[in-house]
Amino acid sequence: MSIWEAVAIFVAGTAAGTINTIVGSGTLITFPVLLATGLPPVTATVSNALGLIPGSISGAIGYRAELAGQRRRILRLGLAALVGGLAGAMLLTLLPPTAFETIVPVLVTLALVLVVLQPRISAAVQRRRERRGTGAPHLDGGPLLFTALLVASVYGGYFTAAQGIIYLSLMGILIDDSLQRINATKNVLAAIVNTVAALFFLFVAHFDWTAVLLIAVGSAIGGQIGAGIGRRLSPVVLRTFIVVVGTAAVVQLVLR
């Protein structure tokens, strides 16, 4: 690996850590850079997953104020992330690298539509609850959200690209809470998925330690940058940023 390739990976890791903390899709920055340095797709995926762990943890710490009072929610949804992330990591070692290429753009596009429509959908759901007299919504989204996040985490353990957008769309619809607090939860769930997948990869998959270390340092720095930026964004601006980043991710996935 040349010095310029190392610099490119570090910069990509910093950018990925920043954007992952705010919304997600950082893998769409690091993954192409790793491929450009000559790493095979699976090796690049595994190295990327390992390297992004510090960024996920850094972002979660940066959002610690928004995590207050969410212990029960995170414990419950974290279990879905843990199981799903491990299953996705196992699938990566069993399925061909192109297995998810067809479904991923569709999945991310659907998530973006849900993010855009989330305020209207949430209001409609609340009005329906009031008419039926069913009271306040479930604090952690209930069985439906647990199942949906379990499936999303399988995808996250497999590839991770735009995983955060999918999480935000699901929780935004099924949890009655602010977008910033939901984003904080997203960062913790992403950290769980990345960590469990990476621990599995340590024992069964090949990775490039130099790339891992460069992305790890860069993403840890980016996590703090992203938390500083993301926590200051209004819900409208944050939702707009999610849509813009997600649209760019879909275009990149389709053209890749």
Rank of each mutant, 00 (worst) to 15 (best):
A44G: 09
V104W: 01
L86G: 04
I225A: 07
V244N: 09
L189G: 03
A60R: 00
L77P: 03
V212G: 02
G133Y: 09
V243A: 09
I242C: 07
T27H: 06
R232C: 03
A124C: 09
L75T: 10
G51C: 09
Q163C: 09
R181H: 10
L145F: 08
A111F: 05
T109K: 07
T18K: 00
L139T: 12
L77I: 11
L94F: 11
I229G: 05
T37Q: 06
F100R: 06
I173K: 04
S219Y: 05
L149M: 13
T102R: 15
F207L: 08
V237K: 10
G246W: 07
A184W: 07
L92A: 13
A248L: 15
I121F: 09
I192G: 02
A152D: 02
T18P: 02
N194A: 13
R64N: 12
P41S: 11
D176F: 12
L253Y: 01
A81K: 02
L170S: 05
G84T: 11
T160W: 01
S234E: 11
A80E: 05
A148C: 12
L86P: 01
L77K: 06
R72A: 15
A68V: 14
R128I: 08
A162Y: 01
S234N: 09
I3W: 15
G55S: 08
R76D: 05
V106A: 13
A15S: 14
L253A: 04
G59D: 11
A12G: 05
P32V: 09
L189Q: 06
A99M: 14
L255F: 08
L149P: 03
A216S: 10
A124K: 13
L107R: 09
T240H: 12
T14C: 13
P235I: 01
I173A: 04
W4N: 11
T109L: 15
I182M: 06
V236T: 15
W209D: 12
G24N: 05
G69E: 08
R131N: 13
F241A: 05
M1E: 12
T195R: 07
G69N: 11
A8S: 15
V243K: 08
Y155S: 04
V42L: 10
V42F: 04
L50V: 03
V193K: 03
V154K: 01
A8Q: 08
G38S: 11
P105Q: 13
G133N: 08
D140F: 10
S58I: 10
V212K: 00
V83P: 00
A248P: 00
I22A: 08
R71F: 07
G218K: 10
N183H: 10
I173C: 06
N187F: 01
L213N: 11
S47M: 00
L174A: 04
V106Q: 04
H138W: 12
G55L: 01
T134M: 08
A49G: 07
L91T: 06
Y158S: 09
D140Y: 11
V46W: 02
V108G: 04
I3G: 06
A211T: 02
Y158W: 14
